[in-house]
Design a protein around this nucleic acid. Structure first.
Lengths: 148, 148
DNA sequence: GACAAAATCATACGAAAGAATGACGCGCGA
DNA sequence: TCGCGCGTCATTCTTTCGTATGATTTTGTC
């Protein structure tokens, strides 16, 4: 199933155990249970945000994540040009972020993938575009109507 | 600011208070503090997911109206913007070649200067544009009407 | 379930790019 | 004539890019 859910569960269990341990041994001896609650609340709020973003942000059709950019009317011509060049949706997504001036690292953070993955997508996209640099790829992409 | 954050905070406070209340009056009388923790964990995990999605949904950096206006019939459309930013003519020249996807070496060959010189111009231009990468500089340049 | 296409990630290595610094000459205005 | 902006160039160093290679995991389809 979703790997994230498992991680969430595991980490959650560990955290609770850990908190209970500290609770029973140190904190509660002098402070109220409220501290315990607040700690858990903060931790799980953060964990929830992480889970939420990871679960619902990426993974979608083409320009769904953070790249609405041009009007939606462009999503169709985009797709034709894209398929004609054999560029995958993900590759195009990365390419659009490249065109926005993001570094590979930033793109990875935006799409919740590793920098390695971004590099792979970039390389393949560049190859399919006949570009050897990212600036060149951006230019070709705009010429071909791939990018707004 | 983010309305969601406020709501999150308020709901969180209410929940904690409420949980504390119930804790002290009913549950803890018969069960361990663990139940308290698990409840808070679940609630805030859910809240976190909600916050996370809500926070990331409008993450499209909208306001990207594609074409920047200043490209009138003015024979010198970029000169005003250029001077306003303190960018020298030579720097702009280099920047335009950068936008064409040329490498520093190629730019040097095109302008009959060394690669070092190109790098210097680039660095200064990037600085004046508030860009940290050439792709970002190109983007900013287009937004500001510096490059066609 | 098997299969193919996509997507993910890692590691290593060479090539660019970029920052920082210092230097030199030229033209121009005070 | 001096100062200053601009253009030029080099060197050193760090960071980022890009390629190559191989592997695993999703995911949609038959």
């Amino acid at each position: 199933m979703r790997k994230q859910v498992l991680i969430f569960g595991l980490v959650g269990g560990v955290l609770i155990t850990l908190l209970q341990w500290t609770e029973f041994h140190f904190i509660v001896l002098e402070h109220s249970v409220a501290i315990y609650g607040v700690l858990i609340a903060i931790l799980f709020a953060g964990a929830g945000i992480w889970l939420g973003t990871r679960l619902l942000a990426p993974r979608g059709r083409v320009g769904e994540v953070a790249v609405p950019g041009p009007s939606k009317a462009d999503s169709i011509p985009d797709d034709r040009a894209r398929e004609r060049l054999g560029i995958t949706p993900r590759e195009l997504e990365v390419l659009q972020l490249v065109a926005r001036g993001l570094s590979n690292r930033e793109i990875g953070e935006t799409l919740f993938v590793s920098e390695s993955t971004v590099k792979t997508h970039c390389s393949r996209a560049f190859d399919k575009l006949g570009a050897r640099r990212r600036t060149e790829a951006v230019r070709r992409g705009k010429e071909l109507g791939l990018i707004g």
